[in-house]
């Protein structure tokens, strides 16, 4: 559906590469999660894929159905529509720009409106809609052309949990319809929930790419054990926990995080904790997740 081969881009000749040798391929009907901290190069990569910018190195190949007019759609992270127009006028405008008219236009509008759940607010001015409705309108506009490839750039930013859940369901429904989706978000649990494959990008380079199972099975990304004790461990106890159980961190809520070696067992950690006379009151076992993987690859330092 889409093939990127060694794509590079920079804004000026004397500036660093913003996208640096990125390669990946998308199969029809998959959701590809693209993760990266701020300024990692995600938006530039989206602009390259959507044709707004041309790569200075490498090649982007799109399937014929993607190259066709309306074959792909960018749903930007901004609410890219006209707030002074109603939802219906916005949708009709973007459909008109794609050359839709008559029965086809009506059918596409109905489909997009149903997917985004906008039925009750079609005649409301877009600028007067709630944050969740605006996000849904933003998505609906991307759907009016019935694209085969959708680029969703942080589609759930700033919405309430209900709207987020609705949008994620809508994304998965689109996959069932055979759409191919590139999904970027800062919300790891979202990406983990919807994506078939995930890539992490930072400083313009693709750091890892694969299915969630492959990435989380990475031996360097040790499984974690988190537990909370009734009282905080003393300094000597903390030293024992670090030496024998791999204590990594202690957060402000009192959760102790242990990096359990591949050959280690959670029971060994729990036994040591009991031996030190610490009473366990909370436990999260095997909590290796996408966020851990993300922080491992992109480090914890602030980016803004």
């Amino acid at each position: 559906m889409l093939q990127l081969t060694d794509i590079s881009y920079r804004y000026r000749v004397d500036s660093p590469w913003v996208v640096d040798g990125v390669s990946f391929a998308l199969a029809r009907g998959e959701i590809f999660g693209l993760l990266g901290p701020n300024w990692a190069g995600k938006s530039t990569l989206m602009a390259l894929i959507s044709g707004l910018r041309r790569p200075q190195q490498g090649e982007i190949r799109r399937a014929p159905e993607v190259e066709a007019r309306g074959g792909f759609a960018l749903v930007p992270q901004d609410n890219a529509f006209y707030p002074m127009l109603s939802c219906r006028e916005n949708l009709e405008f973007f459909a008109g720009v794609l050359g839709l008219k008559g029965g086809l236009l009506r059918a596409r509008l109905e489909q997009a409106v149903a997917t985004a759940g906008l039925g009750q607010v079609m005649d409301k001015r877009a600028g007067e809609c709630s944050g969740g409705l605006r996000r849904r309108l933003n998505l609906a506009i991307g759907l009016v052309g019935d694209p085969q490839l959708l680029l969703l750039d942080e589609p759930t930013t700033g919405v309430d949990p209900q709207s987020r859940s609705f949008l994620l369901d809508a994304v998965m429904a689109l996959r069932r319809q055979g759409k191919t989706i590139i999904y970027t978000s800062h919300y790891m649990e979202e990406v983990q929930r919807v994506s078939d494959r995930v890539a992490i990008i930072d400083h313009g380079r693709l750091l890892c790419c694969g299915s969630l199972g492959e990435l989380l099975a990475d031996t360097e990304a040790n499984p974690k054990l988190k537990l909370r004790t009734r009282r905080a461990p003393m300094a000597d106890e903390r030293a024992v926990l670090a030496a024998e159980c791999g204590l990594e961190a202690e957060d402000v809520d009192g959760w102790l995080t242990f990096a359990v070696p591949a050959q280690g067992r959670f029971e060994d950690v729990l036994a040591t904790v009991r031996r030190l006379g610490l009473e366990t009151v909370g436990l999260q076992a095997g909590c290796r997740n996408l966020e851990d993987l993300f922080l491992k690859h992109t480090d914890r330092s602030l980016r803004d």
């Binding site: 309306g70 759609a73 960018l74 930007p76 609410n79 890219a80 973007f94 720009v97 794609l98 506009i141």
Partner: peptide
């Protein structure tokens, strides 16, 4: 330009 409609329209090959 600020709302993003301009790049959106450009991405639609307008």
């Amino acid at each position: 330009k600020q709302l993003g409609t301009f790049p959106r329209l450009r991405s639609l090959q307008v």
